[in-house]
Simulated scan of single mutants.
Amino acid sequence: MSGSHADDDPGRPADAAPGGPAVSRAEFDSVFAAVSTWGRWPEADRGAWNRVTGDHVRRAAALVRSGTTVQLGLPWNTRAGPDNSRPALHYMSDLGDVEAPEPATHKDFIAADYHGKAVSHLDALCHVAYRGRLYDGRPARESVDAGGARFGSVEALGPLVTKGVLLDLPAVLGTDWLEPGHAVRARDVLAAERALGVTIDEGCAVLLRSGRFRRRRELGPWDADAACAGLHVDAVPLLAERAIALLGGDGDSDVRPSPVEGVHSPVHALAVAAMGVPLLDNLDLEALSAACAEARRHEFMIVVSPLRVPGGTGSPVNPVAVL
């Protein structure tokens, strides 16, 4: 079928509010405490990546059958628009037109304020604080200043190789995309596992496809800060119970508008600040969806290697799935 719309979305009742059922601040704080892993690992600034051992890497490698590789990063986005208020920079710094010994060289410069909705990136543990605390209870004001982060920086994470699971919600629901504001609940995650024949388990990376970039190609860009499909708060305890290492998607994992008054990114707060789970934002999952459908499996090896930025709050990244 063609793209779904809010009033005919098969994955959401017609009377469902955008963002899903409201969650009070007290209820949210209870969830935060329940999923917290503060104090669990000596290398606290690696958070949930401490779960991934050599056994997990070997398990992931065993998922490679055809050797098909799929890059998950978006093209470098230098064009302003409703979902790109801070365009990335790319310009040529050397055109090989200055007399010099052979060979001539061509050089370019790139830069990005990458947190947002336009650049595929990884959120490190220093990126999110809730009630003044980073992951593991570290005071944010003492841990991050104008020189960068002294705890939870992206350099502390290193690379990750583990099992990836694609929760392809549009494929499960028989539609092309989820409409902005569609809240993915715990029951939807369980239904997707059953329908796709996958298991979310310890140390794996969970990727949620909403079909955002297919919708964008067909209908044009919109302000994804105001409305975007993503996870509802009630899905997070399930992911915490399964002991995941990484969460990502073609949005930023949060449904928008937020169901929690006064908390604009509740899934960010729960995943990063409570669980120590880094996030992958703004992935292009369309090619992976097609590859998984062709292979008839939605589990694969994923390789994530962020830039080594001392004190960095994250990194632009181009993860690779290998089937």
Results as ranks from 00 to 15, higher is better:
226 A>T: 11
286 E>P: 08
225 D>E: 13
260 V>Y: 07
271 A>Y: 02
290 A>K: 02
248 G>L: 00
271 A>G: 05
251 G>Y: 01
258 S>Y: 01
252 D>A: 10
273 A>D: 12
252 D>S: 12
264 H>I: 14
285 L>S: 01
235 A>T: 13
235 A>P: 11
286 E>Q: 13
255 V>G: 01
271 A>I: 01
278 P>L: 06
284 D>I: 00
278 P>Q: 02
233 V>K: 05
282 N>Y: 04
238 L>P: 01
228 C>M: 15
260 V>R: 00
263 V>S: 09
247 L>G: 06
271 A>F: 00
238 L>G: 00
253 S>Y: 06
226 A>H: 05
242 R>N: 08
245 A>F: 06
243 A>S: 12
256 R>H: 15
226 A>R: 14
287 A>Y: 09
288 L>A: 07
243 A>E: 15
255 V>E: 13
261 E>Y: 11
267 V>W: 09
284 D>G: 12
246 L>G: 06
245 A>Y: 11
233 V>G: 08
278 P>T: 00
225 D>A: 13
289 S>I: 02
241 E>Q: 12
257 P>E: 11
242 R>S: 13
231 L>D: 05
263 V>F: 11
285 L>P: 03
234 D>V: 02
288 L>E: 03
255 V>C: 06
234 D>L: 04
228 C>D: 10
251 G>V: 01
264 H>T: 15
227 A>K: 05
269 A>I: 15
241 E>F: 00
247 L>M: 07
250 D>R: 12
280 L>C: 05
263 V>H: 08
292 C>G: 05
290 A>G: 08
232 H>G: 09
237 P>A: 02
267 V>G: 09
